[in-house]
Protein backbone atom coordinates (compact mmCIF):
# COMPACT_ATOMS: atom_id res chain seq x y z
CA UNK A 1 0.00 0.00 0.00
CA UNK A 2 1.19 3.43 -0.90
CA UNK A 3 -1.10 6.29 -0.02
CA UNK A 4 -1.36 9.39 -2.20
CA UNK A 5 -1.88 12.68 -0.42
CA UNK A 6 -5.56 13.57 -0.35
CA UNK A 7 -7.50 16.55 0.90
CA UNK A 8 -8.30 15.71 4.50
CA UNK A 9 -11.61 14.02 5.18
CA UNK A 10 -13.23 13.05 8.47
CA UNK A 11 -12.46 9.57 9.80
CA UNK A 12 -14.93 6.91 10.76
CA UNK A 13 -14.28 3.61 12.43
CA UNK A 14 -15.72 0.30 11.27
CA UNK A 15 -15.30 -3.27 12.43
CA UNK A 16 -14.02 -6.00 10.15
CA UNK A 17 -14.41 -9.47 11.63
CA UNK A 18 -14.36 -7.86 15.06
CA UNK A 19 -11.23 -5.80 14.45
CA UNK A 20 -11.62 -2.00 14.51
CA UNK A 21 -10.20 -0.04 11.61
CA UNK A 22 -10.17 3.58 10.51
CA UNK A 23 -11.68 4.66 7.22
CA UNK A 24 -12.19 7.93 5.40
CA UNK A 25 -15.71 9.24 5.21
CA UNK A 26 -16.98 9.00 1.65
CA UNK A 27 -15.09 5.88 0.69
CA UNK A 28 -16.36 2.39 0.09
CA UNK A 29 -16.04 -0.54 2.45
CA UNK A 30 -13.87 -2.24 -0.17
CA UNK A 31 -11.46 0.72 -0.30
CA UNK A 32 -11.29 0.84 3.49
CA UNK A 33 -10.40 -2.86 3.70
CA UNK A 34 -7.92 -2.70 0.83
CA UNK A 35 -6.14 0.20 2.54
CA UNK A 36 -5.43 -2.23 5.38
CA UNK A 37 -4.20 -4.72 2.73
CA UNK A 38 -7.09 -7.10 3.29
CA UNK A 39 -7.34 -8.63 -0.18
CA UNK A 40 -9.63 -11.62 0.50
CA UNK A 41 -13.20 -10.70 1.46
CA UNK A 42 -15.07 -13.96 1.20
CA UNK A 43 -15.01 -17.60 0.21
CA UNK A 44 -17.18 -18.88 -2.61
CA UNK A 45 -20.35 -20.88 -2.06
CA UNK A 46 -19.39 -23.40 -4.74
CA UNK A 47 -15.87 -24.51 -3.78
CA UNK A 48 -14.99 -22.40 -0.75
CA UNK A 49 -12.04 -20.66 -2.40
CA UNK A 50 -10.96 -17.15 -1.41
CA UNK A 51 -12.05 -14.08 -3.36
CA UNK A 52 -11.63 -10.36 -3.10
CA UNK A 53 -12.63 -7.26 -5.03
CA UNK A 54 -12.00 -7.48 -8.76
CA UNK A 55 -13.85 -4.71 -10.63
CA UNK A 56 -14.47 -2.10 -7.88
CA UNK A 57 -17.46 -0.81 -9.86
CA UNK A 58 -20.29 -3.05 -8.77
CA UNK A 59 -20.46 -5.61 -11.54
CA UNK A 60 -18.34 -8.64 -10.58
CA UNK A 61 -19.89 -9.45 -7.17
CA UNK A 62 -16.64 -10.89 -5.89
CA UNK A 63 -16.37 -8.45 -2.96
CA UNK A 64 -19.53 -9.69 -1.21
CA UNK A 65 -19.45 -9.31 2.56
CA UNK A 66 -21.92 -9.33 5.41
CA UNK A 67 -22.69 -5.80 6.59
CA UNK A 68 -24.63 -5.20 9.80
CA UNK A 69 -26.08 -8.70 9.61
CA UNK A 70 -27.12 -8.55 5.95
CA UNK A 71 -25.27 -10.97 3.66
CA UNK A 72 -24.36 -10.49 -0.03
CA UNK A 73 -23.57 -6.79 0.25
CA UNK A 74 -21.17 -5.42 -2.35
CA UNK A 75 -18.26 -3.93 -0.42
CA UNK A 76 -17.29 -1.79 -3.43
CA UNK A 77 -20.78 -0.23 -3.61
CA UNK A 78 -21.37 0.30 0.09
CA UNK A 79 -20.02 3.44 1.70
CA UNK A 80 -18.51 3.33 5.17
CA UNK A 81 -20.52 4.56 8.13
CA UNK A 82 -19.28 4.96 11.64
CA UNK A 83 -19.82 1.80 13.67
CA UNK A 84 -20.51 -0.41 10.66
CA UNK A 85 -19.95 -4.10 11.32
CA UNK A 86 -18.42 -5.87 8.34
CA UNK A 87 -17.77 -9.60 8.22
CA UNK A 88 -16.12 -11.87 5.71
CA UNK A 89 -18.79 -13.95 3.99
CA UNK A 90 -17.93 -17.62 4.15
CA UNK A 91 -19.57 -19.76 1.49
CA UNK A 92 -23.26 -19.02 1.15
CA UNK A 93 -23.30 -17.50 4.63
CA UNK A 94 -24.52 -18.66 7.98
CA UNK A 95 -28.05 -19.79 8.76
CA UNK A 96 -27.69 -19.34 12.49
CA UNK A 97 -28.46 -15.64 12.43
CA UNK A 98 -31.64 -16.13 10.49
CA UNK A 99 -33.24 -18.83 12.51
CA UNK A 100 -33.37 -16.96 15.80
CA UNK A 101 -36.77 -15.86 16.97
CA UNK A 102 -35.89 -12.17 17.20
CA UNK A 103 -35.68 -12.11 13.42
CA UNK A 104 -39.17 -13.43 13.21
CA UNK A 105 -41.06 -10.21 13.76
CA UNK A 106 -43.40 -9.97 10.79
Amino acid sequence: MHEIEMNPSPKVSIKFDGQTLQANEGETVAAALLRQTHLAFRTTAVTGTSRGPFCMMGICFDCLVEIDGVPNKQACMTYVENGMRVKRQLGAGDTGVFLSDEEDTQ
Binding site: M1, M6, R35, A40, M56
Partner: peptide, 24 residues
Amino acid sequence: WTLPGVMTAGSAQILLKSSGITFS
Protein backbone atom coordinates in the same frame (compact mmCIF):
# COMPACT_ATOMS: atom_id res chain seq x y z
CA TRP B 1 -7.52 -14.45 -12.44
CA THR B 2 -9.93 -15.16 -9.59
CA LEU B 3 -7.26 -14.98 -6.86
CA PRO B 4 -7.53 -12.20 -4.27
CA GLY B 5 -5.03 -9.52 -5.26
CA VAL B 6 -5.88 -9.78 -8.96
CA MET B 7 -8.00 -6.81 -9.97
CA THR B 8 -8.81 -4.89 -13.10
CA ALA B 9 -6.65 -1.92 -14.03
CA GLY B 10 -9.83 0.12 -13.80
CA SER B 11 -9.98 -0.86 -10.12
CA ALA B 12 -6.50 0.53 -9.63
CA GLN B 13 -7.70 3.82 -11.08
CA ILE B 14 -10.92 3.88 -9.05
CA LEU B 15 -8.93 3.32 -5.85
CA LEU B 16 -6.50 6.04 -6.82
CA LYS B 17 -9.13 8.60 -7.86
CA SER B 18 -11.50 8.13 -4.98
CA SER B 19 -9.36 7.04 -2.04
CA GLY B 20 -5.74 7.77 -2.92
CA ILE B 21 -4.95 4.08 -2.50
CA THR B 22 -2.23 2.50 -4.63
CA PHE B 23 -0.29 -0.74 -4.40
CA SER B 24 3.49 -0.66 -4.55
